[in-house]
Every structure is written in structure tokens, then in C-alpha cells.
Design a binder for these strands. Structure first.
Length: 587
DNA sequence: ATTGCCGGGCT
DNA sequence: AGCCCGGCAAT
């Protein structure tokens, strides 16, 4: 039989009908009688089909994303050798992502959490890193530099965002460089952990830069110098070289510089690149700040959020909340920011999508006013800033403009919002003024959907869906109804529970029942108002496609393949033969 | 790597 | 509709 089939296949299946011609019912039986016959030597297995081409894997991401610190040396080395690498890598990834998505299209918008999301994450991660580095002046500096370099001379910037990146890059770069001298200094003395990354960056710099820079490096270390350097360097024409500011300023000046730097950063914060750890509890206004790192934090965060929002739109399908506060992974800022960069003004308010993106861990960030006697908590950075500005700083007129000062007067609070409802409810009251945007952004939680007025954003991923999905599945399967299986399964015995797992039991017969009756009490009939019911309905109908198709849980039981083996493929149930869910041995 | 089976193409 | 298979995901 098999041989026949094989032959048939090899001959392009022109005669495909043959095997099928045998009456389906008897066939198995007959064959069952045949087993005695030595199975015809299976024809030489057809050469395995050549593997379908796959998009090349993106270049090792390690350089860009991975744990920056750990990856450190290797990654940095790679980067150093060819700064462009990173950039290219990014692009490649993008492309790949695109293709992946494209490929995925056919497949029910495959699970949103799939590659696309990951990729997004990655990307953003990278960006985040960059940001972080700016703030901290840490390891990531090189990153920024690399990017800059690559962008500048090497290639033409394809589009707006690129340009923006460039811009930012340069700035960043300056900052980064400023740090370097210090790093060198520290290198000898401190040996900070993050330092090992630097050498690379420095190396590169050294290549281009004069040795005198090194000398300068030896100067006493002032963290504040950074800011100064930044300012000074801006003047310098040299793009590739890093010059250390020759002059040092008095401590007082340094403070000033700090402030200045802070302001600069703040203003720059619009750029997605600037980032800082999300949750930073700096009660001590002065104490906790470190080298200006803290300064932009709040502002940047707001900026960040706002940026992230657009990204969401781009990938509506992926809920992916990248930021995990726990891991303290640097934030991802969507590289794409085509829109934003140009308007680097303090237009935070514009986007101010206050709403921190929903995080995986269901953490929500709130902003608390630290002003004495004012414990006001708002959900958005912008909101809190505004609040501080107007209420405490008394800057009524310039409400729009933020010089960053407000940042000192509020802190971020992480809230654990396990239940969406909580988050929403708390949200609403707290920041009535700006919260409007927030609700839509938190679609994830189940409860939210009912509460949120705005239906469009609602994801259909909610539990209901999952439950409903099985139902749908049922239908689908019913449709298929592979007739072949002679042995009918115990329809009656199988009891149908709403749960996906058990539903599988009864494919064949009863599904119909189900279709009519929504399985889960939650969604099902009785409860909903007309509207709600409708909603449910929609969910039911659409989900199969949009949602992660609930794949039928894999049956543990024996399957035709197992039972009969490949040799007796003919004995398989049709479904099995067709690579469909086995109907004979249903689990 | 194997296996179950979905999604989709071809006839 | 029947048949088949690529490819994904679970194992």
C-alpha cells in the first residue's frame, strides 16, 4: 500500500485516486487482515524536501541587547571592530521581524507573544540601554557612540527617525565621551564593575582621539565634569573624537553645571533615548541623585511612556509589555520614534500618554508629589509635573513648558495592580484630569473590559476568549468531520467541561450542543445584557482568527501513528493520514 | 528529534 | 469535499 502511495506521490500524484478508491470502510479491515503480508519494501523514501528557506537569523544580538554587562567584553569587542555592525544588526532584525510577521500572517495572527513581540522587546531594549547609558554614563556609552558613528559617516539615513536618531546620537555621544575620561581615571582607581565594558568604547575612541586625551583623563575625577564637558563639547566641531574638557570648575560651578546638565537632559528627554530606571524612589532630593542620572528620570520616564504609546499602535497585536520592573531591564524605547524626535521640545504634554504601559507583572507606576504636605498621586508624569508646576512652583503661565525642576518634587511609585479593576478604579479617582488616556492602554486585564468605556482597544485576549475559543474550535472540527474513523468514540461518556482540556474529548458528536450554549457561565447566555451578549458573540466569532488559536491540547493517548506505525499508514484514520487530529484515538 | 495537528493548498 | 503537506508547538 505504502509503496503504492509512494509511487503515486513520486509520480506527481496524478493517480492519487487509487488508494482512495478502495471503499473506505472495509479498507482498514481488509488491511488489518493483511498484516501477515510482509509489507512491501517501502520505496526509497523520497528525499526529504529541501528545507524551506528561512530568513537569516539576526546577527547575534548579544552585542546590542543581551545583558549588557555580562556580554560586555565580547559584544563590545565586536562592536569595536565594526561599529556599523550593531546598526546593521538592528536593521536586519527589523527586516526579519517584518518578514516574520508577514509569514505569520497566514497563520491566524499567530500568538501575539510570538517573535514579533520579542523582537520588539529586543529592539526597545536596545534603545533602552542606550538611554540608560546616557543617564548613568555607564557601560552603554559605547552603544551610543557606535550608533552615532555608524549613522554619521557610514550611511545615509533612510528616514526621518534615523535623522532624529542621529541628532540624539550626537548628543548622547558627547555625553558618553565626557564620561570616558572619568572612566579611565576610575579604571585605575576604582575598577567599577561596569567598567569593563568601557575599555572597548575607549579603545575606539583612543584610536580616533589623540593621546592627549588620555592625559587629561588623568585629571582628578569630577562627576560633574560630565555636564560641563557636554556643553563644551557641543561647541567642538570634531565629531569622532572625544575631547576632555581641559578646564575644571569649582565645586560650586559644578553644582550649577549639574543643574544645567539636568535641564539639558530634561529638554532632551523628549528623545526616546533618555531613560532611567522606572522606579526610583528618591526621597532625598539631593542625596539620591547621582550625577544627573536622576535628573531626567522622571521626565524621561514620561517621555518614554509617551513614546511607547506609538509603538503600541504599530503593533497592536502584541500586548507585549516589555518593561519588567523587576528585572530592571532597561526600558525599551521604541526606536522608531519617527514622530517624536524632531519635536524635541518639552512637548511631553503632547504625547503625554501618561499611562505607563501595562507591564507584564502588572505593575503600575504612579507619581507622587513629594512636596511637603502634598501627597498627591497622579498616574502620569506629566500630570504630576503639571501639578507641581502650577501648584507648588507657581508657574501658571508656562504650564506647558517643563524645565525639569518638577522632577525633583515627585517620585515614582510602583503599584502592584493584580486586578485590573483595582488599577482602573484607583486610577480614575486619582488623576481625573489626565487619566483619560490611561484606561485604553490597559486592556489586558479582564475586568477592565467591562469597565472601560472605550471598547475599541479592548483586546480580545481575555479569558472569555480563551474559553470561547474552544467552542469555536469545536465548530471547526465539526466541520472537518473526517469521516474515516470507523471506531466511533464514546460520545456519551465524554463530559464537556468548559475547560479546553476536556472539550477535546468529544469532538465528533456533540459539538453542536455547545455551539448553541456558550460554555462558560461567565460569558454565556444569561448574564449579559443585550449589549454584553453581543459583545460576547463577537468575541466568539472573531476569536478563532485573531486570537491565539487554542491549539487542541495534544492528546497523550495512542494515535494511529503510534498504534499502527508508519508502515501501516493505511490503517490510520483519515484524520491521521491527513495530519489532522486523530479521530480514532481521541483522548 | 519526534509527534500531533492546524492552516492552507491542490485537485 | 477529499486529500495532502508545510510548519508550528508540545513533548
Amino acid at each position: 500500500m505504502q509503496a503504492r502511495r509512494l509511487a503515486k506521490r513520486s509520480s506527481l500524484g496524478s493517480r492519487r485516486g487509487n488508494a482512495a478508491l478502495q471503499p473506505p470502510g472495509p479498507a482498514p479491515a481488509r488491511e488489518g487482515a493483511l498484516p501477515g503480508l510482509p509489507p512491501p519494501a517501502p520505496a526509497p523514501a523520497p528525499a526529504p524536501a529541501p528545507e524551506s528557506w528561512r530568513p537569516p537569523l539576526p546577527p547575534p544580538r548579544s552585542a546590542g541587547t543581551g545583558p549588557p554587562r555580562a556580554a560586555g567584553a565580547a559584544a563590545a569587542a565586536a562592536a569595536a571592530s565594526s561599529p556599523v555592525l550593531l546598526l546593521l544588526g538592528e536593521e536586519d532584525e527589523d527586516e526579519e521581524g517584518g518578514s516574520r510577521r508577514r509569514r505569520g500572517l497566514g497563520r491566524v495572527q499567530a500568538k501575539p507573544r510570538g517573535g514579533a513581540e520579542e523582537e520588539d522587546d529586543d529592539e526597545e531594549d536596545e534603545d533602552e540601554e542606550v538611554v540608560v547609558e546616557v543617564v548613568d554614563g555607564d557601560d552603554d556609552d559605547e552603544d551610543g557612540e557606535e550608533r552615532f558613528v555608524a549613522l554619521g559617516p557610514g550611511r545615509q539615513l533612510p528616514k526621518g527617525p534615523g535623522r532624529g536618531a542621529l541628532k540624539v546620537g550626537s548628543i548622547k555621544r558627547e555625553m558618553a565621551f565626557t564620561f570616558q575620561p572619568e572612566d579611565l581615571k576610575r579604571d585605575s582607581s576604582k575598577k567599577l564593575s561596569h567598567q569593563h565594558l568601557f575599555p572597548l568604547a575607549m579603545e575606539e575612541d583612543v584610536k580616533t582621539a589623540d593621546t592627549k586625551k588620555v592625559n587629561r583623563v588623568l585629571d582628578h575625577e569630577k562627576e560633574n565634569t560630565r555636564s560641563i564637558c557636554l556643553l563644551e563639547q557641543k561647541r567642538k566641531v570634531v565629531s569622532s573624537n572625544i575631547d576632555v574638557p581641559p578646564a575644571r570648575k569649582s565645586s560650586e560651578e559644578l553644582d550649577m553645571d549639574k543643574v544645567t546638565a539636568a535641564m539639558v537632559l530634561t529638554s532632551l528627554s523628549t528623545s526616546p533615548l533618555v531613560r532611567s530606571p522606572p522606579v526610583r524612589q528618591n526621597e532625598g532630593l539631593s542625596g539620591s541623585w547621582k550625577e544627573g542620572g536622576g535628573v531626567p528620570s522622571s521626565t524621561s520616564s514620561s517621555g518614554y511612556w509617551s513614546w511607547s504609546a506609538p509603538s503600541d499602535q504599530s503593533n497592536p497585536s502584541t500586548p507585549s509589555p516589555p518593561l519588567s520592573a523587576d528585572s530592571f531591564k532597561p526600558f525599551r524605547s521604541p526606536a522608531p520614534p519617527d514622530d517624536g524626535i524632531d519635536e524635541a521640545e518639552a512637548s511631553n504634554l503632547l504625547f503625554d500618554e501618561p499611562i505607563p504601559r501595562k507591564r507584564k507583572n502588572s505593575m503600575k507606576v504612579m507619581f507622587k508629589c513629594l512636596w511637603k504636605n502634598c501627597g498627591k498621586v497622579l498616574s502620569t508624569a506629566v500630570g504630576i509635573q503639571k501639578h507641581i508646576r502650577t501648584i507648588h512652583l507657581g508657574r501658571v503661565g508656562e504650564s506647558d513648558y517643563s524645565d525639569g525642576e518638577e522632577d525633583f518634587y515627585y517620585t515614582e511609585i510602583k503599584l502592584n495592580t493584580d486586578s485590573v479593576a483595582d488599577g482602573l478604579s484607583s486610577l480614575a479617582p486619582v488623576s481625573p484630569s489626565q487619566s483619560l488616556a490611561s484606561p485604553p492602554t490597559f486592556p489586558i486585564p479582564d475586568s477592565s473590559r467591562t469597565e472601560t468605556p472605550c471598547a475599541k482597544t479592548e483586546t480580545k485576549l481575555m479569558t472569555p476568549l480563551s474559553r470561547s475559543a474552544p467552542t469555536t474550535l469545536y465548530l471547526v472540527h465539526t466541520d472537518h468531520a473526517y469521516q474515516a474513523t470507523p471506531p466511533v468514540n464514546i460520545p456519551g461518556s465524554a463530559k464537556f467541561t468548559p475547560n479546553g482540556s476536556s472539550f477535546s474529548i468529544s469532538w465528533q458528536s456533540p459539538p453542536v450542543t455547545f455551539t448553541g450554549i456558550p460554555v462558560s457561565p461567565t460569558h454565556s447566555h444569561p448574564v449579559g445584557t443585550g449589549e454584553q451578549r453581543q459583545h460576547t458573540h463577537t468575541v466568539l466569532s472573531s476569536p478563532p482568527r485573531g486570537t491565539v488559536s487554542l491549539r487542541k491540547p495534544r492528546g497523550e493517548g495512542k494515535k494511529c501513528r503510534k498504534v499502527y506505525g508508519m508502515e501501516n499508514r493505511d490503517m490510520w484514520c483519515t484524520a491521521c493520514r491527513w495530519k489532522k487530529a486523530c479521530q480514532r484515538f481521541i483522548d
